[in-house]
Design a protein around this nucleic acid. Structure first.
Lengths: 206, 206, 206, 206
DNA sequence: GATGAATGAGCCTTCATTCAT
DNA sequence: AATGAATGAAGGCTCATTCAT
């Protein structure tokens, strides 16, 4: 283990402060002054560690997206490679892992999505994640559906995931993780051939 | 006597300029200077007609949401009150009317959605429209499904609509209206009892 | 009598609106928009009748100062030319005529005094009135005091008048006219030779 | 470590620049741009040190009033507690200390007085000082006059002080400190019982 | 490593004024 | 005579960033 320097302390601290600032004031008002106040440090330090505000925002977005995709990867790793339904549920579950649904993250995610329409760097990050979700879904679905149909259903699931996130970002009560997964699981089960639904998941709506 | 009837000319002109500015530069950079440049008028005129930037943004959001809900209302008015499937398709179709899917509107819609998390006025407008969509869907679905199930399916459809809009806002190719409606129709048909699917809409979704 | 045109109606109307605006918002915030709102007319009309804001302010100041000096002139005209004490009291009384002490006028007077330090036109108007007060006082006092002493006492009385006005402009209860005159009369009586105090004014403090 | 001790340099520097700007252009035209130009710094720095223009104006007014009341306090401290006449002269003298009568301060004082009619913060500051002057005078006068009479004379002296300041603000030659004190001392001596006028101050007023 | 000082650019708004009607 | 439309200039303020310490 190398000695941990300040960067390893300051960077997560500032990224977290950024999400808190976005959560409570919105991306537009999340000035370096505000963020640094949340972090309890001087504004100048943001330039020191991230080269500027853009660098901090990019790092924050990477962090949010990474956290999300990690949730998926971890669950996929724990799932039988041949259990198609299980793997799709893992993907969905990863996106609705309660640990990642706190308001701070959801709001930051939407703020960046909106922002990424006009910022190339953010756009690329967003695109990669979005496409990865689609490709993960498609890969699994292709094992039980025709390619065209797999693409179709993957789009449906991706839209459901993002739509529920989107609506949850606005709703005062946030995202209802359990309901989200029930909606998507229900969708999935109605799309798959009956022979793929025989294993442990028989409680359609719990 | 002064020039008369200018408000009816200037207001839509400025609202349109706002959407263009948001489309090409994003809400954050849509300053009154930029917007007025798009409209070909002086910045001060925004105050004259809207009392300030906030007034213009609110009017723009109202315009976007109104346009969307009008698309639904118009189609509902043309649909047989007893044709449940037809009415739901009308609701969905209204949300994906090609006239309303040009990039400008979609980007503005998302920008405002994101913004509304921290602006009470925008939040209220957003909430009203969002709830109206849900309530329209639920009302129709209740005629063929149990109440609880109707609510469940309504949430699914609403999430699909918003999710597709959201993903379309980011996608360079925009929203594919036909595909959007196919996905949602397909979802709907798999949720409804078979006896409600007998009319003219047979297997539009292949 | 000539036919009375609009100018004779509009000008006093706007001057009065100016004083109301200054009274309730201060000279700094008394924009043409605010003043015209008080007058119930369009802002453009100020240019029409006064050639601009400066013209209106100048006319307003003239009006205030004229009103004050008229109060003095009227009372002097009604006073025995040989009653020195009576004439000085007339001068003082003119400055504290209750009709001229309403908040609106007092505030406007002070606002203009302050402003006149940096506006040549206002400065000249102010100076003329101020010197006229001094010269009126001096003329009367010279009849009973040595010239140097007369000048000295005139300065004292003028300072008392302006000082009481000044303090009254700030005091929520405004100027106490009766108290003001008592203070100045008292001052005067202690300055004059005893043989001039024999007439009707024996109630020193009432 | 950043540069240290700048506030102690910048704050008086900016307050002084404010008075210079008011002196030469008037309060209305004393914009932050103008003030900062006088101070030789950037306009933004006013926010840095005073939180905004209002903060700077308030600090400037505090400075002016403090300076005035300090002049009184210092002189009172040097005066025999039992020498009533001496103490009142100290109060008057403090208000006409030549160091505090330069045009800059006098104009600023009047500008703020006028402004305080419509600014609560300034109003409160003004009121405190004004009442303190009155209360200082009353306290001393009560030792040689009946309470009612003391209040009466205190008002007279306060009016003389403020009236002379007011007239001096407009006069090109400024305030004549010596004449001011002569006028007020003369007033005082004519108000006090003869037995209080026996000490060292005999006929200073000619 | 970290900070407060300092700034130039830009933003929203207000304002006095001009003009066509 | 009177108005609303329209504007250029200016004002106060925020902000991301640089810099000396």
């Amino acid at each position: 283990m190398p000695k941990v320097g300040m960067p390893e302390i300051r960077k997560p601290q500032l990224i977290n402060a950024t999400m808190e600032a976005i959560d409570s004031h919105g991306l537009q008002k999340a000035s370096v002054a505000l963020i640094s106040r949340y972090a309890g440090v001087s504004p100048a330090i943001i330039n020191h560690y991230f080269g500027g505000k853009d660098g901090l925002l990019e790092a924050t977005m990477r962090s949010v997206l990474k956290q999300l995709s990690n949730g998926v990867s971890e669950r996929l790793a724990e799932t039988d490679p041949d259990d198609v339904v299980g793997r799709i549920k893992a993907i969905v579950g990863g996106n609705f892992d309660p640990r990642q649904l706190d308001r701070k993250v959801v709001k930051t995610w939407l703020a960046f999505w909106s922002q990424s329409m006009h910022d190339n760097m953010l756009f690329r990050l967003q695109r990669v994640n979005e496409q990865r979700l689609l490709s993960h879904l498609r890969r699994e679905l292709k094992r039980v559906l025709e390619p065209e149909r797999a693409q179709f259903v993957a789009q449906g699931i991706a839209a459901l995931i993002d739509g529920i996130w989107l609506r949850g970002a606005l709703a005062p009560e946030g995202i209802n993780s359990e309901m989200a997964q029930r909606i998507i699981t229900d969708y999935l089960e109605r799309q798959l051939p009956p022979e793929n639904l025989n294993t442990e998941h028989k409680r359609r709506t719990q």
